[in-house]
C-alpha cells in the first residue's frame, strides 16, 4: 500500500468539518398490499403460491394483479400454481449493502413457475423473483443454472407470517449444494 502524503482525517474529524452536514433520514411506512397481493400473501401463509390470469391475453401474474397491465382490464380469476418451476435467469451478487465483499455471495433470480393446464405458448409464464439456494457459482457462470428445475423451500408453518419470506428460497429439485 502506498503511503500518501498529507494529514489523514478520522471519520469523526470529517463529520465535524464545517460545510458537511450529516443527516439521518427517518421515515416509516405501512404499505397497503391491496386486494390481489393480499390474496397472494395469505396464500404463502398456507404454503400456496397464488397468481391471477388474464383470459384475454393469457398472462399469468405472480404475485397476482387485480388488473392486466397489457390489456388494461381486470384479471379474470386467481389460480393456484405449483411451488416449483425452472430458473429463467440467475445472478451472483458479491457486494454487501456497505460495498464490502461478501464472504458468501448471494444468488437471486427469476423462477418460471409451472402453470399446469395451460398449453405452452398459450400463456405468458408466471415469473417470480426470489433467492436461489443450493446452486454454485459455476452453475451460473456456465449457464447450467438456466432451466434448472427448482422448488420452493418453505419456512415451517408456525413461522410463516404472510410474507414473501415465507419461502426461504428456491432450491434445485433433488437437492443441491447449500
Amino acid at each position: 500500500m502506498v503511503e500518501l502524503e498529507g494529514t489523514k482525517l478520522s471519520e469523526k474529524e470529517i463529520e465535524t468539518l464545517p460545510g458537511v452536514i450529516y443527516y439521518k433520514p427517518f421515515t416509516r411506512y405501512k404499505f397497503t398490499a391491496g386486494y390481489a397481493v393480499s390474496v397472494f400473501l395469505e396464500g404463502l401463509k398456507r404454503g400456496k403460491i397464488v397468481g391471477s390470469i388474464c383470459r384475454r391475453c393469457g398472462r399469468v401474474y405472480v404475485p397476482p394483479r387485480s388488473y392486466c397491465e397489457y390489456c388494461l382490464k381486470p384479471t379474470d380469476e386467481f389460480i393456484e400454481l405449483p411451488d416449483r418451476g425452472e430458473i429463467s435467469t440467475a445472478v451472483i451478487s458479491y457486494i454487501s449493502a456497505k460495498r464490502g465483499r461478501l464472504e458468501k455471495p448471494e444468488f437471486v433470480g427469476v423462477i418460471r413457475l409451472e402453470t399446469p393446464g395451460y398449453r405452452e405458448g398459450s400463456y405468458e409464464f408466471a415469473g417470480l423473483f426470489h433467492k436461489i439456494c443450493g446452486i454454485t457459482e459455476e452453475d451460473v457462470k456456465t449457464g447450467k443454472a438456466i432451466g434448472m428445475k427448482v422448488k420452493a423451500r418453505w419456512r415451517p408453518p408456525e413461522e410463516r407470517a404472510g410474507s414473501i419470506l415465507d419461502i426461504e428460497c428456491f432450491e434445485p429439485i433433488g437437492g443441491g449444494e447449500d
Binding site: 452536514i21 443527516y23 433520514p25 427517518f26 421515515t27 416509516r28 411506512y29 405501512k30 404499505f31 397497503t32
Partner: peptide, 23 residues
Amino acid sequence: AKPSDIVDLGKIYEMALDPIYVR
C-alpha cells in the same frame, strides 16, 4: 396519494426543508 401508508408524515415534510439552515 396514499397518505394513510405514511407513518411519519412529519419526517417526510422535514426532508422537504433545506437541510443546512432550515431543518
